[in-house]
Structures are given as structure tokens and as C-alpha cells.
């Protein structure tokens, strides 16, 4: 591994895109930064700009009004990039999907209908330790792509 690749893998920068939903997954993701779970000791930093990110974390069901914004953010992140989907609503629509023939009209679809996803983290909501485990798998994938 060259120097560039080693530095990318050892300190990945994460962009967090909250796409609606009930906020349960959002507070568990922000709790990863607090003193008990402290991901900054592993070299991870949260940025606000997609141009500076390596990993995109998406949580929440994606409503129809927000699909365009999510696609634009995905296209602005430079390669190589990894997408992580967190929580039941992001994987399959969760409890808002409806049953039988009926699909709720406010749903833009689970995340993998809109952008390609690499790692899936199930849970409702998943514990912060489970999210850290998911991000560790994402870093493994980033190593292969670099």
C-alpha cells in the first residue's frame, strides 16, 4: 500500500445524511461521538461537506421529496467511496412499507433503489457498538477499492 492509500484507510472522514425517519437511528449515530463510545480515537471525523468525505452514512426512510438531494450528494463525493445504510427503514422501508399490495405513498423507496449500497446494518435502532462494527466492515471495503 502506498502512503496515500495507507493514510486514507487509517483516518476515514464520514458524512452523515439524515433522510427523514423517526430520529432513533440519528441519535444513536451521534451517540458514537460521545465520551463512552468515542470513535475519534479510531481516527474517524465527521465533516459537513461531501467533497471531503470517504464514507457516506445514510439513515432513515427516504421520502419522495428528498431523493433528488440525496442523489446530488452521492454524485459530489469523490471516488473511492463507500455507502453504509443504517436501520430497518433504510434497508427495506421497515414498518412504514405497508402490507400486501399497499405501499405508503410518502416513501421514495429503500436506499438501494436510489444509490448503490455497500454495507447494511440491521437493527431498530442498532446499538452504537453495532454501528461501529458496520463502519469497521466499511473500512475493509475501502481498503479493497483504493
Amino acid at each position: 500500500m502506498g502512503l496515500k492509500a495507507w493514510s486514507r484507510v487509517k483516518s476515514p472522514w464520514i458524512m452523515f445524511a439524515p433522510c427523514g425517519g423517526c430520529n432513533g437511528c440519528h441519535i444513536e449515530i451521534v451517540a458514537c461521538l460521545t465520551p463512552r463510545y468515542d470513535v475519534e480515537r479510531l481516527g474517524i471525523k465527521i465533516t459537513g461537506s461531501p467533497r471531503q468525505a470517504d464514507i457516506l452514512v445514510v439513515a432513515g426512510h427516504v421520502s419522495k421529496q428528498i431523493t433528488k438531494a440525496l442523489k446530488r450528494i452521492y454524485e459530489q463525493i469523490p471516488d473511492p467511496k463507500v455507502v453504509v445504510a443504517v436501520g430497518s427503514c433504510a434497508l427495506t422501508g421497515g414498518v412504514f412499507y405497508g402490507e400486501g399490495d399497499y405501499v405508503s405513498y410518502g416513501l421514495g423507496g429503500p436506499v438501494n433503489k436510489i444509490i448503490p449500497v455497500d454495507v447494511y446494518v440491521p437493527g431498530c435502532p442498532p446499538k452504537p457498538e453495532a454501528i461501529i462494527h458496520g463502519i469497521a466492515l466499511a473500512i475493509q471495503k475501502l481498503k479493497e477499492k483504493v
Binding site: G20, S63, F96, G98, S104, G106, L107
Partner: peptide
């Protein structure tokens, strides 16, 4: 607002 619209009250009338 309106980015988080899920159609909850309509979902509740089917279960």
C-alpha cells in the same frame, strides 16, 4: 417542512 412525510395516519387505518 414536508421532507419527512410518511403517510402515517393513512397507514394506521389499515391495521
Amino acid at each position: 417542512t414536508g421532507f419527512n412525510h410518511r403517510g402515517i395516519m393513512k397507514l394506521m387505518e389499515k391495521r
